[in-house]
Amino acid sequence: MAAVLIGIGINVFILPFQLLEGGVFGIGLLINYLWGFKIGMTIICVNLPIYLLAFKIERSYFFNSLYGTLFTPIMIDLLLPLKGMIELPILISACVGGVFIGTGTGLMLRYRSSPGGIDLLALLLSKHFSVNAGFFIFFIDSLILTSGLLIFKDRMMIYSLFTVMSVAFLVTVLTSFRSINAYPK
């Protein structure tokens, strides 16, 4: 279900305005906008080195995140026909897309899984530094957005900041409260 939420967020709300998200999703979007490569396949390729690192450092995160890392890019590519299905103003679309992506990502992280890439890296850093994963995600996502602004030189890209803020907020909320099921004693 979380991967479906992410796929809907990207295809229905982010792609129609060529907005960016952060993390490997943002990298996948950048590459798609520049060269037309499929977003899901790009995400899988970008995830590979991060997963090798996770395998070396924290194998439980590696194994827990395999589902999210493989299923999320597949859902993004499968749900591409939904692109532009709902027409909203760009600001609302950026925020609603962020809500969908943040909810999907936050749900995965809450249960010690991840859609991969930067989120997995954030989970590893969060464990090591005892800082909420949402902070790391927001920081890295901001760097990716800045890259998008520099590459495309399009002021419309600033709306992507609302997507990143929505994602970071929901990830922070969903990973801040412990659940009986999320953290076995």
Results as ranks from 00 to 15, higher is better:
Ile8Arg: 02
Leu79Val: 05
Ala168Lys: 03
Leu107Ala: 01
Ile14Trp: 02
Leu109His: 06
Ile101Pro: 01
Pro16Tyr: 05
Leu120Tyr: 06
Leu70Pro: 04
Ser176His: 14
Ser179Met: 14
Thr175Met: 04
Ile14His: 01
Gly26Val: 09
Leu91Phe: 13
Leu19Ser: 02
Pro81Leu: 10
Ala168Gly: 08
Phe162Thr: 13
Ile31Arg: 05
Gly134Tyr: 08
Ala122His: 09
Leu52Arg: 04
Leu124Glu: 03
Ser113Arg: 03
Ser65Ala: 11
Val164Ile: 15
Pro73Trp: 04
Ile43Met: 15
Leu82Cys: 08
Ile31Lys: 10
Ile39Asn: 02
Ala122Val: 13
Ser126Cys: 08
Leu34Gly: 07
Lys56Ala: 14
Lys185Gln: 08
Ile151His: 08
Cys45Val: 15
Ile118Thr: 15
Thr69Phe: 15
Lys83Met: 12
Tyr67Thr: 11
Phe136Asp: 05
Leu109Ala: 09
Gly22Asn: 11
Gly106Thr: 09
Ser142Trp: 13
Tyr183Asp: 12
Cys45Asp: 06
Asp77Ile: 11
Asp77Phe: 06
Ile14Tyr: 04
Ala133Pro: 13
Leu124Cys: 02
Ser166Ile: 11
Phe55Arg: 12
Gly7Asn: 10
Met156Val: 14
Ala168Leu: 06
Phe169Tyr: 07
Asn47Ile: 00
Ser130Pro: 06
Leu149Asn: 07
Leu19Gly: 01
Phe25Ile: 08
Gly116Phe: 00
Ile43Trp: 02
Phe169Lys: 02
Gly7Leu: 05
Ser93Lys: 02
Leu145Lys: 01
Val173Ser: 01
Ala3Cys: 10
Ser130Phe: 13
Gly98Thr: 08
Glu87Asp: 12
Gly97Lys: 00
Leu53Met: 13
Ala2Asn: 06
Leu19Lys: 01
Phe71Pro: 08
Ser160Glu: 14
Arg112His: 15
Ser176Lys: 15
Val164Lys: 03
Leu20Gly: 03
Leu174Asn: 02
Phe136Ser: 05
Tyr183Ala: 06
Asn64Val: 07
Leu78Thr: 12
Pro115Gln: 12
Phe71Glu: 09
Gly36Ser: 07
Phe37Gln: 11
Ile14Glu: 06
Val164Ser: 10
Leu30Pro: 06
Ser147Gln: 04
Leu5Ala: 07
Gly22Ser: 13
Val99Pro: 04
Met156Asp: 15
Ile90Cys: 04
Asn47Cys: 03
Ile10Cys: 00
Val164Met: 08
Phe55Val: 03
Pro81Asn: 07
